[in-house]
Simulated scan of single mutants.
Amino acid sequence: MDKKKFDVLVERESALNWHAFDAYTTPAGSLWPRFFYYYGNDIGFLEWSKKRAIEDFFWQPSKPADINLYAAQIRNLTVRSNNIPVKIALPSGEDNNNLGLRSLSLSGDLENFEILSENANPYIRLYPNVKRDRSVLPYRLPVFKALEKITWVDVVVEPLGQPLDCECLLQFSNLQGLNLTGNLSNVASLKKLEKLESLAIRYAPNLENFPSLNAWDNLKSFIGWNIEEITGKRLKTELKELIKSGKELEYCSVSKLRSSVWFTTEYGIPFTNWESKNAKIATKAYKTALQKIAKGKTENEVKQALVELIETINKLPNIETVEREDTSIAIQQLIEASPVKIQQETANNWFDEVRDF
């Protein structure tokens, strides 16, 4: 966890007295805290929650874990695995009363999760670790046999990272609601999810071969937001036609249509997680390089703009492995935006020649 954000620091193996929070309430009298972020291995919070409801709980264990959510009163539970096996037993649909689990979010290395369930149908959110390289083979979700009956799922990947292969979503054949965020591939397969009533696509730079909105007979709601403009214009037209036809619809919208250049150069600037002063300097240098590259007519002009960016980064303090990778991604994005075609290997050579980090 970011050391600037934690409120209490304990050893990962410490047993915690979760009842220490029992006496605390908000001025209005409701339970406090409502949200917990816990990095550690004490699963006593599950037993505690059977008597004291929790609205949101984020948990990242550091050793293999096996938990049972039967009777746990955690409305929204997020579990993150960083290469750690985690087994989660879900309450059955009959056991999951109004105070129990509403949504389960799994993040990190999803292949390390084992889900046990009998007819459980929580709202599932998936945040898989994907590569930051758009050129690699698309990512496929692991098969979650115990979740095959779920009706709602969200999947979030990076817009400028490894794409999600939408065909892997067909394992959830009962889906009525689907929210997808990020870089997608094989979107044509989504038309096989015949029970869809609600579909939302956000921050998607590539929607080539996306199905017609008429492909889903039960569709009542469609949202396309910050999506690539070519397919987005078609979907906007189709949505207008559906409205004119008198089809019964709930909230629908197609907006913020974006060019491929926007995703690369505006949304995807890779320095946003740096220390604030370094981030500001690097981002300014990135945008300056982009302006020069956009006007460039020769390979040498593009090279000079990249060299100036790298030299600016050279002067910043505390540039380590992660920052080096971010700068490499910035170089890749800039040559993609260049009107002069530059080979990635050539740009990498320039990067290695100039950088001193």
Rank of each mutant, 00 (worst) to 15 (best):
G40K: 05
A23T: 08
Q344W: 08
Y127D: 01
T78A: 11
G100S: 13
P122K: 04
Y251G: 07
I124K: 01
T151Y: 01
K191R: 14
E229G: 04
S260H: 07
R75D: 02
L104W: 02
L46T: 02
R34A: 13
E353V: 04
R140F: 06
L160W: 08
K63Y: 05
N97F: 06
N209D: 13
Q343M: 11
A28C: 09
I88M: 10
P270Y: 02
D165F: 05
Q343H: 11
D42L: 08
L193H: 06
A200N: 08
L16K: 07
F263A: 03
L147F: 10
N179R: 14
A204Y: 02
H19K: 10
N273E: 13
F263L: 04
L101Y: 07
E336W: 03
G177R: 11
A120P: 06
S245H: 08
E241V: 04
I313N: 02
T298L: 05
G224F: 02
K195W: 06
E228N: 09
K240Y: 04
K292G: 01
S30H: 12
N300Q: 12
K3F: 08
T272V: 15
L334W: 01
K233Y: 06
S107P: 00
L249N: 03
Y139P: 03
I43Y: 05
L175C: 15
A23H: 11
L104F: 05
E114H: 09
I74H: 07
I227S: 03
R12L: 12
E158S: 15
I88R: 05
L141A: 06
V156K: 03
N83G: 07
L77K: 00
P138F: 02
L235Y: 01
L242W: 05
L126V: 00
Q343L: 07
W216I: 03
E238G: 05
F172T: 05
I227Y: 04
I227F: 09
F113K: 00
L160E: 06
S173W: 03
A215E: 05
R258Q: 15
G268D: 04
V153T: 15
S212E: 07
S14W: 04
Q73I: 02
N41R: 06
N318E: 14
F36G: 00
S117W: 01
E11G: 14
A146E: 11
T264L: 13
I342M: 13
V136L: 11
K256H: 13
E320F: 15
E345I: 08
E148N: 15
G177E: 14
W225F: 13
N41I: 02
D352R: 15
R258F: 07
K341F: 06
A23Y: 05
G182L: 02
G108Y: 00
W225I: 09
N186Q: 10
I319S: 08
L126D: 00
Y123S: 05
F357I: 01
Y267D: 14
T78H: 11
E336D: 07
N98P: 01
K4V: 04
I124D: 01
I84D: 00
V130K: 01
E158R: 15
T151F: 03
W48R: 06
N17Q: 12
W225N: 11
D356T: 14
K50T: 15
A279W: 01
N129T: 10
I124Q: 00
K236A: 13
D154L: 08
W350Y: 15
G177L: 08
D22N: 09
I223G: 00
L249M: 08
S255L: 07
N300D: 11
L77I: 03
